[in-house]
Design a protein around this nucleic acid. Structure first.
Lengths: 137, 137
DNA sequence: GGGCAAATTGCAAATGATTTGCATTTATGC
DNA sequence: GCATAAATGCAAATCATTTGCAATTTGCCC
């Protein structure tokens, strides 16, 4: 599977570097989307420059390898793209925990938008904010 | 109706200033959410300082008078809050036009999230990206 | 309407995320 | 291995947003 990823880079004239490999490892191991700073902090040694992290996240986003998640915090987060399981998030305003929401019931809504306005949706962004089960106790 | 708005300010110990009145006029006349800069550009004369615009948008958001919309452009947009018609947006990647989507079929999804995870949602953010009817021609 | 205290504004400087230029280093094709 | 193109680190720039503070405006009482 790493090979499939390598091909994506190769097929687009990009190298599969040590940094890129590490970034993917870190994002792959994360249980919720990470910010560029959090990603940098995940390196114990030889922390890469933030500029390189930003450049790589942009690149990998354009290659469809990672997805950008904006929770309105003033910075962006990134997660591994898993097209087979389109994801949204729920964010707890009390503890800040971010959980995934796997299913997405928006197809019906997208169809309706198309029928009524002619707008052809290609992607959407959906995040929920509230209080998680633990914090509600 | 302006009086109702005035009361919101007064009841929270805030003045209803000329700037605040103008900001509400501008946002009220806009057909899609505006950025702080766009708002400033709407003034022909005596353009207010961006800092004041930012301060007032934050204030009015906390008072529930305006809503913040983040389309992932790297800055925020604001629109008059109309609780009676909860809105989302569709953004055309070709011409940049932003249209409203009035109905929202997410209650079912929020119920399901609550049933399965115990997460109590309080609000959500939903935007669609794609191509509008005009640009598809 | 005038006067005062509190709230608001403008301006300049600070902050924080993200981007860019460029010299150095690393990866790829031969 | 070598030459070349791509990637990285570092410093400086950029852009949205925030903050401190002095000057101005507003709300309120007379």
């Amino acid at each position: 599977m790493t090979n499939d990823i390598k091909k994506v880079f190769r097929n687009n004239g990009k190298s599969f570097t040590g940094l890129r490999s590490s970034l993917l490892d870190i994002l792959g191991a994360a249980s919720s989307p990470l910010s560029p700073k959090e990603i940098r902090d995940s390196f114990s040694l030889n922390k890469p420059d933030l500029a390189s992290i930003y450049r790589n996240l942009s690149l990998m986003e354009s290659l469809g390898i990672v997805d950008c998640v904006d929770l309105g915090e003033g910075f962006k987060r990134y997660e591994i793209s898993r097209p087979e399981s389109h994801r949204h998030h729920v964010i707890c305003r009390s503890c800040g925990k971010i959980e995934d929401v796997h299913e997405c019931g928006l197809q019906e809504m997208e169809k309706k938008i198309f029928r009524t306005t002619g707008f052809k949706t290609e992607k959407h962004r959906l995040e929920f904010f509230g209080v998680c089960a633990v914090c509600r106790k």
